[in-house]
Write a protein that binds this DNA or RNA. Sequence first.
DNA 1: TGCTTTTTATATCGAACCGATATAAAACAT
DNA 2: ATGTTTTATATCGGTTCGATATAAAAAGCA
Lengths: 181, 181
Amino acid sequence: MDVKTVCLGVLTLGDATGYEIRKMFEDGPFQYFTDAGFGSIYPALNKLHGEGLVTCEQQSQSGRPDKKVYSITQAGREYFTEAIRDAPGPDKFRSDFLLGLFFEHFLPRDLIVGAVDERIAWYRAKLEKMRCCDRSGWGTGPVFVNEFGQAVYAAALAFLEESRPKLAEAGDKPNKTQAAE
Amino acid sequence: MDVKTVCLGVLTLGDATGYEIRKMFEDGPFQYFTDAGFGSIYPALNKLHGEGLVTCEQQSQSGRPDKKVYSITQAGREYFTEAIRDAPGPDKFRSDFLLGLFFEHFLPRDLIVGAVDERIAWYRAKLEKMRCCDRSGWGTGPVFVNEFGQAVYAAALAFLEESRPKLAEAGDKPNKTQAAE
DNA sequence: TGCTTTTTATATCGAACCGATATAAAACAT
DNA sequence: ATGTTTTATATCGGTTCGATATAAAAAGCA
C-alpha cells in the first residue's frame, strides 16, 4: 500500500497535519505494521491535494511555515474504500538484527550477546507501548490489529529471552568447540 | 542494511550468480527477514565489482546473456565484517493485510473473512517451508534465525486461527449491532 | 516426437520511498 | 537564564521496488 493511501486512511479518522500523521506511524496504533517518514508524507499530501482527494486549510503563522490541516473529501473516501478492497500483498518481517545473528561467526561473542540484550529491551519497550495505551473507544479493527501486534512481538521477545542463556553460555566455551547436541 | 551488504553476506557462503542470490531471498534461509529483487541485486553486484569487493567470472554463452558468477574478495570479506558490527536498526513488521483489518468497517464482512482465511493459508505455507527444509549442516546462526522466524510466524498464525471464528460470527449479526461481549 | 510451461539468467527504467538535513518558534525543564 | 524537547513544514540525493523485456534450456506431458 503506498503512502498516499495510508495517509488517506489516517485522515478518515479525523483531520490532521502531516506532522500528526507521522506521529500516528511512530507512536500511535499504526506503529508496528506500517511506516512512513516526512519525506514521503508531505509529497503524498501534496499529490492528494492536487487530485482533490483531500482539502487543506492553511493557518498562516508569523515567522514560521503555515500550519496545514488536511481533511479527506468525499472523493477521497471513495478512493480509499476502493483501494483497500484489493488483495493485500504478503506480510513482511525485516530485521538487520537477525542478519547479524545469521553471520554470528563473524562477530565476537560479547557483541552478539549485547545486541540480543538490546533487542530484548527494545521489544519490551515496544510491547509496553502497545499494551498500556487506552483502548476504550477503539473499534474492533484497531483492537484486532493491536492484539495481533502484541502476539507477534511477545513471541519474538519470548524467543529471545529463552535463547539468551544458551547464546551466552556458548561463548564461555573455547571458540568453535561446540559440545555435541 | 543495504542490498550491497546483504549480497556480500550471501557471497560469504559461496560463489553465486545474481539469480541464485535472489532465490536465497525468496525460498532460502534469508526468506523472512530480508528481501531484494533483481532491480536491486544486479546494480548492487555491479557496484561491488567496481569497488573490488567481489570478482566476477563471466561464462559466455551463445545466444543469451553471459552467466556471471560472483565471488567475494578478501577486501569484501573485511568490508562485510565491519558492516555487520554496527548496531542494527529496529525490526520491522509491515502488513497491508492489517491495514485492511484496521479499516474493517469500510469492507464487507465476507471480504474480511476471506482475507483472513487467505492469510492463514499463507502463514501455514510459509511455516511449512521454514520447518521442513534440511537443517543438518547449518551453523548456529542460521538455525537461530530460522527458529526465531518460526516462533514469530507461528504466533501470527495462531492469533489468526483463534480470531477467525469471532470475526465470522460478528458478521452473522445485523450490521453494527454488536452484542455486549 | 512435438508442444507447452517452468526454470534459469541478465538487465533496465521510472516511480516511489527513505534518511538526512535545514529552519524556527513555542513550550518545558533545570 | 539557558538549554532541550516538541511542534511543524519542506527538500534533495541516493536507494530501492515493481514491472517489463529477452531468451534458451529443462522438464512435463500427450
